Amino acid sequence: PDDLEKRARELLKRGKNPDEIREYLRNAGYDQSQAEEALKRAL
């Protein structure tokens, strides 16, 4: 898994919901489609 996916998994483990994770990834400078893909793979 790429770093983005790892980060998404990490956040899920900490109890973040998908919307929070999307926002976090966007704020971290990733584009929307990258964030969506990583989140899908992590779920």
Rank of each mutant, 00 (worst) to 15 (best):
K40I: 12
L25S: 00
P1D: 13
L11V: 01
P1L: 14
A8M: 12
L4E: 02
K6N: 11
R14P: 01
E20R: 02
E37V: 08
L25G: 00
K40R: 14
D19N: 10
E5W: 15
Y24G: 04
L4N: 02
L39I: 14
L4D: 02
L25N: 00
L4V: 09
R22Y: 14
L25P: 00
I21Y: 02
L4F: 05
E36N: 07
A28V: 07
K40N: 12
L39D: 00
Y30M: 08
K16W: 15
P18N: 06
A8T: 12
R26D: 04
R26H: 09
E5H: 12
E36S: 04
A42P: 01
D3T: 10
P1T: 12
L4H: 05
E36I: 05
L11F: 05
D19R: 07
Q34C: 11
R26K: 13
D31V: 05
A8P: 00
D19L: 05
N27R: 09
E20W: 12
K40E: 13
I21K: 00
K13I: 10
R14Q: 15
R7F: 15
L4Y: 06
R9D: 05
K6F: 11
R41G: 06
R7T: 15
R7M: 15
A35T: 12
R9K: 12
E36G: 03
A28G: 06
E5L: 15
L12K: 04
D19P: 03
R41V: 06
Q34L: 12
R26F: 10
E5F: 15
E37M: 05
L25W: 04
N17G: 10
P1H: 11
I21L: 03
A28W: 09
A28K: 08
K40D: 09
L43N: 04
Q32V: 13
E10W: 03
K13V: 09
R22K: 10
K6M: 13
L12F: 05
P18T: 06
E10R: 04
L11D: 05
L11Y: 05
Q34E: 13
G29M: 02
A38L: 08
E10L: 04
P1Q: 13
N27W: 07
R14F: 10
R7S: 09
Y24K: 04
D31M: 06
L12E: 02
E23K: 05
Y30F: 12
R26C: 11
A42H: 01
L39H: 00
E5G: 07
L12H: 07
P18E: 09
R26Q: 11
I21N: 00
K16G: 06
E23R: 06
D19I: 06
R9N: 07
E23Y: 03
N17W: 05
Q34G: 05
A28C: 11
D19M: 08
A38Y: 04
D3Y: 12
Y24N: 07
D31I: 05
L39N: 00
L39P: 00
E37A: 12
N27K: 11
N27T: 08
R14M: 15
L43T: 06
A35S: 08
L11T: 00
I21C: 00
Y24M: 15
N27P: 00
N27L: 14
P18D: 04
E36T: 05
R9P: 00
D19H: 08
L43P: 01
G15K: 02
E20A: 05
A35W: 07
K16R: 08
E5Y: 15
Y24W: 11
K40W: 08
A28M: 15
E20K: 03
A42F: 08
A38E: 02
E37I: 09
K40F: 08
Q34A: 13
R41K: 13
E37W: 03
N17T: 15
K16F: 15
K6E: 12
K16D: 07
E5K: 07
D2Y: 08
A28N: 08
E37Y: 03
Q34Y: 07
G15I: 02
S33K: 13
D31R: 03
D3H: 10
D31L: 07
E20H: 04
R41Y: 04
L12R: 05
S33T: 14
A8W: 05
A28F: 09
E20D: 07
D2M: 11
S33I: 14
K13W: 06
A8E: 00
D3L: 08
D31K: 05
Y30L: 10
Q32T: 13
D3K: 07
Y24C: 09
L43Y: 06
R41Q: 07
K13E: 14
A8S: 04
R41F: 03
P18A: 12
E5D: 10
K6W: 11
A38H: 01
R7E: 09
E23I: 06
L11K: 01
L11G: 02
G15W: 02
L43H: 04
A28T: 05
E36L: 04
N27H: 09
L39Y: 02
L43Q: 08
R9G: 07
Q32N: 11
R9Q: 08
L25E: 00
A38S: 04
E20P: 00
L39E: 00
Y30W: 08
A35I: 15
R22I: 15
A8V: 15
K40S: 11
A42Q: 02
E23N: 06
A28R: 06
R41T: 06
P18H: 09
K16N: 08
R26L: 14
E20Q: 09
N27M: 13
P1V: 14
R7D: 06
Y24L: 15
L12Y: 05
K40A: 12
L25A: 02
P1A: 13
E36W: 03
P1R: 11
G15A: 02
A38F: 10
A38T: 07
A28D: 06
R14T: 14
L4I: 12
G29K: 02
D19Q: 09
N27V: 09
K13N: 13
L39K: 00
N27A: 14
A28L: 15
Y30H: 06
E10S: 04
Q32S: 13
E5Q: 10
I21F: 05
Q32F: 12
L25H: 00
A28H: 11
E37D: 10
E37P: 02
L43E: 04
E23W: 04
L11R: 01
